[in-house]
Design a protein around this nucleic acid. Sequence first.
DNA 1: CATGAATGAGGCTTCATTCAT
DNA 2: GATGAATGAAGCCTCATTCAT
Lengths: 200, 200, 200, 200
Amino acid sequence: MEAGTEKQDRRADRRARTARELVAAAERVLAAKGYHGAKVADIAREAGVGVGTFYLYYPTKEAVFLELVEEAASQLKAQMQEASSEASNPADVSRRRIEVFFHFAARNRDLFRIIFGHDASFHDVVRSAQSMFAADIVQNIRGGMENGVFRTGHPEIWAQALVGMCIHAVSWWVEHDEVSATEVAGQVAALAQHGMVNGH
Amino acid sequence: MEAGTEKQDRRADRRARTARELVAAAERVLAAKGYHGAKVADIAREAGVGVGTFYLYYPTKEAVFLELVEEAASQLKAQMQEASSEASNPADVSRRRIEVFFHFAARNRDLFRIIFGHDASFHDVVRSAQSMFAADIVQNIRGGMENGVFRTGHPEIWAQALVGMCIHAVSWWVEHDEVSATEVAGQVAALAQHGMVNGH
Amino acid sequence: MEAGTEKQDRRADRRARTARELVAAAERVLAAKGYHGAKVADIAREAGVGVGTFYLYYPTKEAVFLELVEEAASQLKAQMQEASSEASNPADVSRRRIEVFFHFAARNRDLFRIIFGHDASFHDVVRSAQSMFAADIVQNIRGGMENGVFRTGHPEIWAQALVGMCIHAVSWWVEHDEVSATEVAGQVAALAQHGMVNGH
Amino acid sequence: MEAGTEKQDRRADRRARTARELVAAAERVLAAKGYHGAKVADIAREAGVGVGTFYLYYPTKEAVFLELVEEAASQLKAQMQEASSEASNPADVSRRRIEVFFHFAARNRDLFRIIFGHDASFHDVVRSAQSMFAADIVQNIRGGMENGVFRTGHPEIWAQALVGMCIHAVSWWVEHDEVSATEVAGQVAALAQHGMVNGH
DNA sequence: CATGAATGAGGCTTCATTCAT
DNA sequence: GATGAATGAAGCCTCATTCAT
């Protein structure tokens, strides 16, 4: 009985390890070559397993991609929510979220390259993940406009603009990392909050 | 005597018509399906010609794509330069450019989808076209910071953020056109200039 | 009446001229690029006519090739027969034929390249033209063996060997013309008649 | 313990078998149809595998062709060298080489058809393989001329003529095998050594 | 479970041939 | 007659996916 359990455990461990190696490999390969450039065989090789093994863990190439995107999105969302919860007002929420975004990017370069890099957003999942963030931002903007912290405007447009700022700034930074995440986050947050023009 | 010339003209007309149909078809198909999703056969069918005909006008599939991107980029650049030349200060330049961007998008939806849409920026031409715009923006920002119109900041990061704002807002708007180009442009410009937070 | 005839003549002339230009062009292009490398469009361009025109004179690409091969073969055959008729014995016939072969090659390089050059003999016509020559040679060899001028041997094999010698020597010479046709012909004829080994 | 190794062996065996079937199929198909007439799909079908499988073993169609040519050339060269080493004088070398050539052809018909058959020599490898043989022959002829075994003449031309004799005789024989390889070789060698004309 | 050999549909491109003008 | 634009069958090659071991 114990033996059986142990063996099962061992198997489960092995499965789990292979699974981890595959995601990690997929992350690296997809980040480096993009969805179309990444071949299933590349991912398997990078993970040190056979091609067939890949298909024991994922039904299709698209599936890994989806999993990575979704995982990244949910982690990021969680961290943003945490950050938001500590914030006192919409402006603060916005600033903290931007910081979270850049720090998350700093810690998960490959994941970011996959989702926001070149050859990304061609896929629906990526787009819907992005809309999810936009929706949260819309909420916050509306709140800020209502209580007068924010100037009035079109919340949906603003939200899209903010998402675009962050994504674009990140994908630039991911390839030219002469500045720190904090610095970029600060610059972007400042721009979002006060704009370019010097106060009257 | 004139017969030869007439015949040549007729031929030239035909060539020109087919050529136009092909570009147009390529524009539509590439916009709708993205570079990877668009098959040469699709473009030919959409243009109402045989596959072979495509290759009488373009050496490869990539070639049409490049032509479209380059043409769009150069048109846009030209219009932006014209707009800039009429502006009195960096803030004005920025606002006008944003307007030009959105109006151009309004008039050239498909072209825009190709360059800034999903499944775009995986290609070097697209990326370099985007950098070109970013570079111009950096110039303007630097000018604005130097003469005090703009607050100080990291021009490169700001430029990337601005490009991101516009691209993202446009690609959102292109699919949800409940608001006018002018409205979107105005909102984005306002955000870029003054930020979200209420003054003083 | 006269006018009509004149017009007809003029037309006929023109046709003849275009025809000549096409054969000439085909000869050059086929010689330069080989059957597979030569495109119908290349031939038409070289002849200064449209692709369609090519098909007014030849039903297929293969047809020009055949015509060239056959024409060359029949000219060569005729010249060889003339040379043979002046010869006094089989050895003389053989020597004269070899001379004719090389001189013909010298005067019709392109034709030779087409028939005996690289990328030639893949085609049945070429092979049957070659057999025709071989058959004539067999006759001569048999004659020579019968009257004791030639040593005895297998006439068919000898004939093939002789054809091979000439063809190969020509196709080498066609690309390395540091020696004269007469010289090559002399060397080959001598070899064919007396062999390499010094007479006891 | 051995299980892994066994499985690997099994796989290796399979790979090797498929590989052998592919070369064999390629040899047959290329010999029968020539380089241009042979389609990759034909080779795959003849080997009893899918098209894709072909590309697991060779990067291009050209690659199999090259491999076959090179292998044949190197085997033939090796056998000729061995034969030459046992010979006592240039005339003997020449005779033995001719014998080796014909016997090799007898044992490797398809390989021969590929290299020396119709639709062959259009390719650089084939031509350079042929030059290699010619170069060796030139050496031997020069030797023979220097020590008086051979009559004097133009070694390069003789070598080309000899190569031509052999190739042509072989490609004739390959399709009309009423005589033995030894017989053909003997006839060709005799012709090469003593020529057609009866020494008085 | 793991493997990697095998598969074949599908995409790009070429070019001999046709045909409307 | 002459033209060259148009055609599409056919060939090469890729790669996501399957499957026998």
